[in-house]
Amino acid sequence: MRARSHEPIVWSLFGAGGVFAALLGTMLVLIIGILVPMGLGFGPDAMHYDSLRSLFGHPLPALGLAVVISLFLFHGAHRIYHTLHDLGIPASKKMMLACYGSAAAGSGVALLLAGMLVVF
């Protein structure tokens, strides 16, 4: 009997992250990093502290942002873990813990922050 791989857990997270990154990533970066700072299509008040605070005071946007961050992190962690192996750094328990552990930690922080934004 061959041992069953637990890869499906991280692979699903990786896949979901990949889909989000592919569908939304480009526009997200474009808006936040280029359009808003350059004022293209957005006024100077765009992404102001108050408007963001009120936007992310609602559970749905806050949770959405946290989920996006979390999935991006897992997507990154998964590929980085495997690519390090490809580049000659052997896959090990420690490496696995480092990659997926930081993604999990980051996700926890994101969820916590989302909660704080909603509650406070």
Partner: peptide, 26 residues
Amino acid sequence: YLLREGTSVMVAAYALFLLAGMVCLV
């Protein structure tokens, strides 16, 4: 292939950047 896999570093970095934004917002 490595370039494709390498994009994941940017994806993760961007997630951290957004996370930093969240922290600041809080």
